[in-house]
Design a protein around this nucleic acid. Structure first.
Lengths: 212, 212, 212, 212
DNA sequence: CATGAATGAGAATTCATTCAT
DNA sequence: TATGAATGAATTCTCATTCAT
């Protein structure tokens, strides 16, 4: 009766997550059209039937994966919010946030996901929009709220917190991310390079936005 | 030999460019995998044989198109170089450059091309790299040279002109371009919004890089 | 053995009839090839194994259903036989029979069954033959016996009772049934229309077959 | 230059009609779902591509065949119309029409087509309706016009020519056609049997509709 | 050279049926 | 006994590329 040990997921759930894992890997590496349901079943080591029983069709599987991939955005948002909430050394803490931001965003998985969504924005406009809102936009919005706080505390001087958040984010992220978008298989940036992007971005940001 | 009247391109060359035009349109709109050689031949109104006579295979045709699409980058680079070369009002001329930059880069064709290259960066790494060098990187490099000049003339204060060029470019471009990447079919930005991105980007840039 | 309470069918028999019910519905609506064993199991709310335990395979299940569907033909035959057996007003009672006949045959279930058998006559010739004998032919034969009786009583004048029965039946039924065969989803006939088919059919029949 | 001999159809048209022929045969024998595009291509001895180039998809091919099959209904209608137009011996000419009618309708191809449309009435309601109008209904309507004429000439006595046409048609056709619907592979009726159906049908019809 | 056809494979999806738990 | 999974093939349709005329 107590046929399933409670710490286990059960055969079915295990298969389901094997499929999700396999499909994630394949979609991220080969794109939507470059991935076949046959491959997914093979990599997940399940039958095609099992894939279709769990996910209806390829589009739905794709959608589930994309939206599931944004699950952990909240954690990241919380971390940066906390770091800036009661800062006593703005330059230092913006630097910390910047390094964390860039480190998060430069992860291969995140870059692949971004590439994938951009590639499929035409075919899956709603999915692209949903991803955009849940991941990059959500982060910018949280950052804007932090900056507004800092302005209220007299630490920053700004008219438009959302614009400032965009400036901050892209001063830090754009150069490595843009390069990465076009160079999937190249050597990644070194930690030192990334730190430099972070620090220089913070420098420019503060030059423009620090209260005199 | 003298069988072609000189003012004409010749039947053959005309067909070749019909194919290029058709394929460009289709690749940009539907992606590499979403475009079939049948469609290309149909839209170009030539036979499939003619396509294969001119381009060996689909990959080569794709490559020719992508690299051909960077032909006019030089003009743009010349324009911004000229605008900054002997500036007498730095803020005004940086603003002009910024507006021109953003206007160029936000064109549907440019965005589609960018999306396409990002989508295919995994499948065509060399092509993606080549595009990157010929288009965005070439522009940044030219800008860096301008900024170095301006620094030498005592108008800017910078250690790393290439970094400064990146900061300038992305302060202006990132926000609209990032949004556009994920929202292929949405309303484009208005001219006023784009100008604001340009002006605010210049403001931040100068706060950090103008010689006191 | 005494393991089943007598007033119940038993789990097993209940499942069996759930399967029959589900399969009947699906076969009638979607045809043989349009119905999958998966669907049948799902609609019957049993596992596929249970379906196969009870019915060997799809063909056998189909056959069981078709032949089972002729179970109530006897009742109808009895009714019309009784109505004509000791008639004292031939025109009235033929009219009653005609109305009953048409009402029976025009029922959606009957029409669907007919369509299904016609559709599958090539694939299941024995089944089609069996259905034909048990349903339409049996009715015609019974009618022919009645008509022979009426002839013996001097009420009808005929050489071939079976032919007369066919004439009667089709004078009444053909027009609505033929239309219904080709118009599955159209509005059914109204009761008034059906009565007119019955009455006019009887009129023509009596003009030819009533003893002067 | 005069590369195609005028009496020929041309390669392409020849292939097209090979496909139509093969598909007709297969659809009529095996039904819509029982026929695969692979089979059609194989029987027509063309590649699957050629099938798809000519017909878009299976549904369209099916529709083309069904509607094409009604092309020769007009000829039949003309023949029966002519036979009744200026009749001088009504019984004889109705008998001729009846025999012709039954001979036409009992042809294997016609029966198969009928079976096929009935089978697919659920999936292709518009097609079934169109077939119904172009073939059986058109004939009945023409017959009704003839009967109205005959009534006007004082040869028939009727209130509703359309009803009379239905009575005529089904008195003759129903018995053999109904049997044939359920007995695809059985021996067909003999000519003598068919003539008897025709003659007896005419007899009953005239008993009810001949002007006294 | 250009057209229609062919090739040969591969995609997504579904099915009837059987196995293992 | 019943459930989920597997099997293995079939179906519709598309594609890149190559022949033959």
């Amino acid at each position: 009766m107590a046929d399933e040990r409670p710490q286990e997921e059960g055969r079915s759930a295990r298969k389901r997550s094997a499929i999700l894992e396999a499909a994630t890997e394949l979609f991220l590496c080969n794109g939507y059209q470059g991935t076949s349901m046959d491959e997914i079943a093979a990599v997940a080591a399940v039958s095609k039937q099992t894939v279709y029983k769990n996910f209806t069709d390829k589009e739905q599987l794709f959608g589930d994966i994309i939206l599931g991939a944004t699950d952990r955005v909240g954690e990241f948002v919380d971390v940066i919010t906390a770091a800036l909430a009661e800062t006593e050394d703005l330059e230092r803490d913006l630097g910390l946030v910047a390094r964390r931001y860039i480190a998060t965003v430069i992860q291969p998985r995140v870059l692949q996901l971004r590439r994938l969504l951009i590639a499929e924005a035409g075919r899956f406009p709603d999915l692209a929009r949903a991803y955009y809102q849940r991941a990059p936009e959500r982060t910018i919005t949280a950052l804007a709220a932090c900056f507004q706080d800092l302005a209220d505390r007299g630490l920053l001087r700004l008219d438009d917190a959302h614009l400032a958040a965009n400036h901050f984010a892209w001063l830090i992220l754009s150069t490595p991310m843009d390069k990465a978008m076009f160079h999937e298989h190249d050597e990644p940036f070194t930690a030192a390079e990334l730190e430099r992007f972070a620090d220089e971005g913070v420098r420019v940001f503060l030059a423009a936005y620090r209260r005199a």
